[in-house]
Simulated scan of single mutants.
Amino acid sequence: MEGFEHLGFLIQIGDKGAEGVPLSQAAPFFANSDPDMPATPVPAVQVHDWILQNIASALEHSTERISTKENGPPSASDPDVAMTDACTNSIKSSPSARGSNFIEGISKSSLVKQASDLRGSSVKVLNCHDSVIYILAPLRYATVYGCSDATIFLGAVGKALRIEHCERVHVITAAKRVCIASCRECVFFLGVNQQPLIVGDNHKIQVAPYNTYYSELEEHMSEVGIEATINRWDEPLTLGMVDPHDSISHPAGVSDVQAESATRLDPDQFTNFLIPNWFGSESRGTTRDNPFLLPDVYLESQKKNQKNLGEIKQLLREAPIEENRKRELSCALHLLFKDWLYASGNIRQLYCLQGD
Rank of each mutant, 00 (worst) to 15 (best):
E104A: 02
I312P: 03
T212D: 04
S301W: 11
R325T: 01
E311P: 06
L136Q: 09
S247T: 04
N54P: 04
I163S: 11
I180V: 11
K108G: 03
F30Q: 05
S109P: 05
S261L: 08
S75L: 08
S281G: 00
N272S: 10
G155L: 06
A27L: 02
E70C: 10
P267A: 00
P138M: 10
A97V: 12
I152M: 02
E300I: 00
Q349I: 15
D356P: 00
A97S: 13
S62E: 13
M1K: 05
D268C: 07
S116K: 10
L139C: 03
I180D: 07
E19M: 10
L136K: 09
D234L: 09
F4K: 04
S182Y: 04
V187R: 02
N211M: 04
L197R: 13
D243A: 01
Y213N: 00
E2A: 03
V21S: 06
A142L: 01
R288M: 15
F337E: 14
N101T: 07
A150E: 00
I135W: 08
G99F: 13
I275C: 07
A262H: 02
S90P: 12
S24D: 10
E2N: 03
K159R: 15
Q206S: 08
L59S: 14
N89Y: 12
G191H: 04
G253Q: 12
H165R: 11
G355K: 15
E318A: 01
T287V: 10
F273M: 13
P209A: 01
T229S: 15
I133N: 01
G310T: 05
G20I: 08
H170R: 05
Q206K: 13
L335W: 15
D243T: 01
E318C: 03
L316P: 00
H48W: 15
S90C: 14
Q349N: 11
K303V: 06
F30D: 04
L336H: 14
Q314H: 07
T143V: 04
P28H: 00
L154W: 07
D15S: 09
N346C: 07
R348Q: 11
I275K: 05
H250N: 04
V112L: 13
L336P: 06
N324A: 01
V257D: 08
L154N: 03
L237W: 13
P244N: 10
P22D: 07
E328M: 01
G3E: 05
L353V: 08
A27Q: 06
T286F: 13
C166P: 10
D256P: 14
G280F: 15
S283D: 14
T63Q: 09
S301Y: 12
E318G: 01
E70T: 09
R184A: 03
E282S: 09
L239M: 07
V192M: 09
F189T: 01
G280K: 12
N101G: 00
L309P: 05
P35G: 02
T271G: 12
V178T: 06
D356G: 04
D78S: 10
Y141H: 11
S109M: 04
V42A: 10
F337Y: 13
Y141P: 02
W233Q: 02
Q195D: 15
A115P: 06
S93D: 14
E260C: 10
M221A: 14
P196T: 11
N346M: 12
I248C: 05
I55S: 03
I230H: 12
G345P: 09
G225A: 03
